[in-house]
Amino acid sequence: MIQIENLVKKFGSIRAVDGISFSVQKGELFGLLGPNGAGKTTTINVLSTLLPPDGGTASIGGYDVAGDPSAVRRLIGIVPQEIALYQDLPARDNLNFWGRLYGMSGKALRMRVEELLEMADLRQQAGQKVETYSGGMKRRLNLVVGLIHAPEVLYLDEPTVGIDAQARGRILELIKELSGSGLTVIYTTHYLEEAEHLCDRIGVIDRGSMVALGDKEELIDQVGDQDHIRFHLPTARIDEFTRAFSGRQDCVVSGVVRGKMELLATDGARLLPDLQSWMTAQGEQLEQLEVERPNLETLYLNLTGRGLRE
């Protein structure tokens, strides 16, 4: 459904999108994961025909975004990160406006508006001005406005930014439902738990480049399946510790990582009692202990040396 080959977008000398390639199958929910400024929104802007690409190609449903933008626009719906609504109007008027803009009218428009209000759980508040809504209600309306014309592809650009956990859960639930209905979705986020929870496949983007691509398991395999154990160890004990643990089969001593001693263990839970015993024997306390299962954050850290929220 979506094919992107070596896509480039420059702003002056800055390459905001630097030769990324990926494809998304029909009905797939594809996550574009990366920190702020990684190039996610720029990619969405190019795919939405809002920005012309400076290199490479991108096609939606077989239509080139640069060569046939009108055909692309008929296929896509966008849900911007911002609340792109007329806040001085009620939800129903907003939906009616966007529906008319897409050439809908009469009974078909009325039915679609009611269907989307139901989907967003906003039927009771449909006559109230959007500015009186809570953050979660605005986000839900923002999302369903992108669906008014029943697009084949939906771009969701960080649709849960700035809302509480409960409201976020409702939005994610809604997106799951949409994905299940056969809609092709590109979902950008810097919340890795959202990407892990929702997406069939994930592309990890950093400084405009795609640094990893695959389904969740494939990506985690790239970091290996070892647990990361970190704890505080006085400098004087480092050599002693390394000698004691480097001969073991069930772990590898990585060294000092972010100010702490790090071990990579095939089973962290089984190694911890041995570690506790050794520290006690040395007259030390096991302090500032961290045990980390491999996840996308680990992958991102490994690939970029930075956290997703840094």
Partner: peptide, 15 residues
């Protein structure tokens, strides 16, 4: 422009 309603309009079928 700021809340991207205009972007949404530009990305619609409107020229």
């Amino acid at each position: 422009r700021k809340d991207r309603t205009l972007a949404r309009l530009v990305a619609s079928r409107a020229s």
